[in-house]
């Protein structure tokens, strides 16, 4: 754990950090991220386009839902990303609270708006699916309510980290909020098992055969991979921009000090 002092001086190339600390060095992060970004972008674009076009035009209609089942190829990946994004946010919060990595704070600030966007997408497409199939835009069952809580947790984090004059205090408060809110993730996951809900239980589970036909499973998995890559590419680009913006602020401050 002797890598922590690297953080005090930004770029010191050639010094081998250890484990996570290596990536906490902003200069190293920028160089690595710039190399990863184009590949991630290409992956995101190809997989998302393939999954969505397959789902919309080539996957079969459901025997009773008809073409409304195609909403699944948006709704389910968005729902997975809403939860996975929050798990990523919680990981950043943990690293930020315990190891005080500034990069984790920046990443957390950039994850929460994207996560909120994907959660809103999940809620909106769920509504558009629920109206023609269930007969209701919205019901207050345990699954829908716990996902709405997730959306509010994201919004809370967005507001909280920007609410303090001292950014470090805001980030610390945000990290605590995120970790407390992480209890919502298992509630979302198991809400359809623990309580009777209008929302159906999971179609794809870790154990057991997926209860959808193989020609519907493939586009769903590809769309989910595509959305995952899209989420990662957006967060990576935003975090790179945030690191650069912080360096710009530091340079401007140093310049102002030198002038005075």
């Amino acid at each position: 754990m002797d890598g922590s002092h690297i953080l005090t001086n930004a770029p010191r190339p050639g010094r081998p950090g250890r484990s996570l600390h290596r990536f906490a060095n902003p200069g190293r992060f920028l160089r690595l991220a710039a190399r990863v970004q184009p590949w991630l972008n290409a992956l995101a674009l190809i997989l998302t386009a393939t999954g969505l076009i397959w789902g919309l035009f080539f996957a079969p209609a459901d025997w009773q839902q008809g073409d409304a089942v195609r909403i699944m190829y948006i709704h389910v990946p968005a729902a997975w990303l809403a939860s996975a994004g929050y798990a990523g946010l919680a990981a950043c919060a943990l690293v930020s609270l315990i190891w005080r990595h500034p990069l984790a704070d920046l990443a957390a600030m950039e994850i929460s708006p994207v996560g909120a966007g994907f959660t809103a997408l999940c809620l909106a497409t769920g509504s558009l699916w629920g109206k023609p199939m269930w007969g209701a835009w919205w019901v207050w069952d345990a699954r829908l309510t716990s996902v709405l809580v997730l959306f509010f947790l994201y919004l809370g984090h967005i507001v909280l980290v920007r609410a303090f004059d001292d950014p470090v205090r805001g980030q610390r408060a945000g990290a605590i909020l995120v970790l407390v809110g992480a209890i919502d993730l298992p509630i979302i996951k198991f809400s359809v098992v623990w309580w009777n809900t209008l929302h159906q239980p999971d179609t794809i589970t870790l154990l057991g055969a997926p209860s959808l036909y193989i020609t519907m499973l493939w586009p769903l998995l590809i769309a989910a991979l595509g959305y995952s890559a899209t989420f990662a590419a957006i967060v990576l680009a935003r975090t790179r921009a945030a690191v650069m913006e912080r360096r710009i602020r530091a340079l401007l401050a140093a310049r102002a000090e030198a002038l005075s």
Binding site: P60, D62, W63, Q65, M133, G135, T203, S211, L212, M216
Partner: peptide, 9 residues
């Protein structure tokens, strides 16, 4: 209507 979790053509 409460849909179950199965989808098939």
């Amino acid at each position: 209507a409460k849909h179950d979790a199965t989808y098939m053509p």
